[in-house]
Amino acid sequence: MEQFLAVAVAHFLALLIPGVDFFLIARTATTSGRRNAVGICVGIACANGILVAAAFSGLSLIRTPMVLHVVQAAGGVFLVWIGIAFLRAETGVERADGSRTGRTTWTRNLGLGLVSGLLNPKNVLFYVSLAAALAGASPAALTLYGAWMVTIVLVWDLFVAVALGSPRALGRLSRVLPWTAKAAGGFLVLLGLGMILTLTTGPMR
């Protein structure tokens, strides 16, 4: 029980740290509505499930430095791409039903959330580190931990999507949404470039 509480608290605290997944959900909820943001949330949860299963099953491939470098490079490129999309995008127009206009679709957002979760170095490093710390846990315990973490990721992301995509929240944020999107886009571009530059300037092992 104590081990479960430690895992649950560590995972939730890591979840509270804003990252690319959070910005992606927030941006989608405020520009395309809650329904489309749910697709992002489901995709991110599926990605977390894949990473948890890979880390907890003892898959050594994702623990090798070369694979981690590849994930970091791909994640950096993805962050730059998402950041540029944020900088170029315009806010949508809210419909009467609370959804937002735009060309985005639920299925497309599902795939986008999946890619975001898989290429997020924070997710990869966290689950790999956690798997190493839980090396002595039983398969049943690892299954319980994994199911719990994926569920919490989905519930938290859905909360963010619903909270930021509600008409009341959109009304309050309408004036600052364009500037917030630009700021988030610039932050993601700088973060992605920093990840890429770290690989090019640091030693390869």
Score class of each variant (00 low, 15 high):
Q3K: 05
A14K: 00
V20E: 04
D21N: 13
F23Q: 08
T30P: 00
S32Y: 15
G33T: 10
R34E: 14
C41N: 02
V42H: 06
I44A: 13
C46F: 15
N48L: 15
G49I: 05
G58K: 05
L59K: 06
L59N: 15
S60T: 14
L61M: 13
V67H: 12
V70T: 10
G76V: 06
F78L: 15
L79R: 09
I82M: 14
I82F: 14
I84R: 03
F86C: 06
R88A: 08
G92Q: 01
G92D: 02
G92T: 00
G98D: 03
R100K: 12
T101D: 11
T104H: 09
R108F: 13
R108T: 13
L110P: 04
G113C: 04
S116K: 04
G117H: 01
P121D: 09
V124P: 06
V124G: 08
F126M: 08
Y127N: 14
A131I: 09
A131V: 12
A135W: 06
P139N: 06
A141K: 11
Y145A: 07
L154P: 04
L154H: 03
V162S: 09
S166I: 00
L173P: 01
L177V: 14
P178F: 09
W179Q: 14
W179N: 08
T180V: 14
K182G: 07
G186Y: 03
L188Q: 10
L197P: 04
G202K: 09
P203A: 11
P203S: 10
M204H: 13
